[in-house]
Design a protein around this nucleic acid. Sequence first.
DNA 1: GTTTGTACAT
Length: 596
Amino acid sequence: MHQLKPRDAATLPRHLLESHVVDLIRRCPNHLAVRAAHARLLRLRLPRLTAAFALSKLLAASCDPTAAAASYARNLFDQIPEPTAFCYNSLIRALSSSSPAPAADTVLVYRRMLRARTPHPNSFTLAFALKACSVAPALGEGRQLHSQAFRRGLEPSPYVQTGLLNLYAKCEEVALARAVFDAMVGDRNLAAWSAMIGGYSRVGMVNEALGLFRQMQAAGVNPDEVTMVSVISACAKAGALDLGRWVHAFIDRKGITVDLELSTALIDMYAKCGLIERAKWVFDAMVERDTKAWSAMIVGLAIHGLVEDALKFFSRMLELKVRPNNVTFIGVLSACAHSGLVNEGRRHWSTMQALGIRPSMENYGCMVDLFCRSGLLDEAHSFVTGMAIPPNSVIWRTLLVASKNSNRFDIVESASKRLLELEPCNPENYVLLSNLYASNSQWDRVNYMRIKMKENNVNVVAGCSSIEINGYLHKFVVSDDSHPEIKDIRLLLREIADHVIRSGHKPWTAAVLHDVGEEEKEVALCEHSERLAIAYGLLKTKAPHIIRVVKNLRFCPDCHEVAKIISKSYNREIIVRDRVRFHRFVQGSCSCKDFW
DNA sequence: GTTTGTACAT
């Protein structure tokens, strides 16, 4: 096809002109190219109808994820005299990937379409608009669209259904997602299976995610690399190493492409399941590594307490000109915090500013943690009060816990006040403050907190630990009676208690909330979820099998001591992933060197 | 012109 001239625009028949336009726009790889094509089309002075056609094609080609692209798309749309459904759909699609508030903006366009009466929204409109609500994510707007889909009879479209499913999965509404998924019997496609598995994985319902993955295979649907990312990340969340290894072998066996995203998920999985060497191995095998891959690696090293490696990887990343972002610095700064490297942390904080990265709440959190763990309470406090954004509850809680541990009651006072202002109903705060009062034997205040909790109907997040035995995740909560083998576990706990006494360890009963007798406090400690899970591991496996436990909260200090004793008296290696990092117990000592 | 994916401070 020869280059189009303004002369052709006046002489060529419309269908030929249109095919020229299509050809020109098809070759646009990015937003700049779209603009260049637009400029060329303007110079051609196309006839009115062809010009409108060109605008709608440009609009469809314009979905670059930048704010500039969004306003460009709006501009194009406003120049189209009688926008077709295709035009509305293209605008919505462009906004969903590039607008700062995709859900709200999309709903506005959708309403505008309804007000215009014609054209009618179709399944494309709903699919694109739902996508915008999923990336936001915006449950309210999404539900409005769900009702629209129903009213307009567009619900049966597989694209609309997958869109709805994905919306609910992204909003962590697994029950709603599952309802859509269940209604899709017959036309569950790969995307639907993947979105549902991803939904379970996101909320940590690992057994459900893996169960659905098995069902998917039974249904004869072949998973792709996108599915596997969700399956692997479910294993990572749960710390389910054996399952993760099995899934990795499955990926190799099926010849599923291990691309950038899947490699990153594998690095994350091996790191979070305690095999940092294997994570490095996956990282080294990658042909291309982006910011997320580097960040996953650095964060992985950080949670293993391997600060030197983490910082080495970070320098290598900079040398290779891969741009770090906020998340990378979460890894770098938390590595410093977990090893007490205050000056190193300060240095990297400046590096971050020098690179023009505006600190996120999490980055501030890392610095506060860094100062707190090193006992620099005054520095932590002035850092918090000098933050460029208002500190959130996590920041105040970090400061509160640290100042409580260093008996800095001046800071305790102000931090707890701010914390309760920000989060009057968070159960975590009640527990924290109750513990604070309990450790000072202020039982009237403890009681007051307990009454407040009842009044506000606050339910405490229970400590929960899990251990994987034969491919199944066994979960324990504090004082859990529900496990079928609880009798044997209790017997073993008693035996452990004897070892603990013989080792000369005195239970740190201050960790127990209630104002009960010392003896009952000891019993309460013995029923902590991590201790139940470790005991169950001792019961069900033999040396040299490593006992691997994952806990949702931080390790109880007393249980940490007891784990050391168990590792020695039973000659077993125990690895516990708590909310913050890994603890590896060998022959009576822990890899965290008791620094936490 | 549709749909599914990864790193995140206590």
